[in-house]
Design a protein around this nucleic acid. Sequence first.
DNA 1: CGTGTAAGGAATTCTGACACG
DNA 2: CGTGTAAGGAATTCTGACACG
Lengths: 91, 91
Amino acid sequence: MTRSDYSYKDKKVITIGIVSELTGLSERQIRYYETRKLLFPERSKTGIRKYSFEDIEILIEIANQLEDGIWTSEIRKELQRREQNLNKAAL
Amino acid sequence: MTRSDYSYKDKKVITIGIVSELTGLSERQIRYYETRKLLFPERSKTGIRKYSFEDIEILIEIANQLEDGIWTSEIRKELQRREQNLNKAAL
DNA sequence: CGTGTAAGGAATTCTGACACG
DNA sequence: CGTGTAAGGAATTCTGACACG
C-alpha cells in the first residue's frame, strides 16, 4: 500500500448505519464495542460517529473472535498488542 | 495502487454532509453536479446518497474547473473522455 | 457479558420550488 | 447557468434505561 492510498483506509467518514450494513453487525453492537475500547470512531461537531474502512475490518475481526467465545477484554488486549508492534515498526 | 486498496477508493459509503465538509462545496452544489451528470452517487434503500473517495476527488476537480469559467457541459465531456481511455486501457 | 428494544429528541437528507441573473 | 434558501416530510443517529442471563 502506498502512502497516498493509506489515507483512504484510515479516514473516518462513514456513518454507523452504513458500517452496520457493511459488517452485518447491529448498531447496538458497534456502539457497545466502542465502550469496550475496541475501536475509536471520530465524531462530527454534532456528535455523529464517523468510522474508517480500517474500523470496518476491525469490526469483522471482532465478530469472528466473539463467535469463537473470546471476551471483548481479550480482543482488546490483542488489538493493543498489535498497535504496539505497529508503533515499534514505525520507529 | 494495488488491487485491494482499489476497493476503498471506489466504494460508495460517504453521505453528502461529510462530502460537503471534505470538499468545501455546498450540498446544493454537489446535488446539482449530479443532475449535470458529472458524478453518480449510489443510494441507500431509503434514498440517501452515498459517495466514494473518488467522487470527492472529482468534485474538487469540478470546483477548480468551474472557477476557471468552464461550463459543466464541458467538464462532463472531459470526464467522459477520461472514462473511455480507462476502459481502453483495461482491455 | 453481550445484545435487543422502546423512547424522545436532535441532526441529516430529500425533493420541488422560488429567486437571481 | 449555477447556486442560495425556506418548506415540509422522511430517515438517521444519539443517549440512558430496562431486560435477559
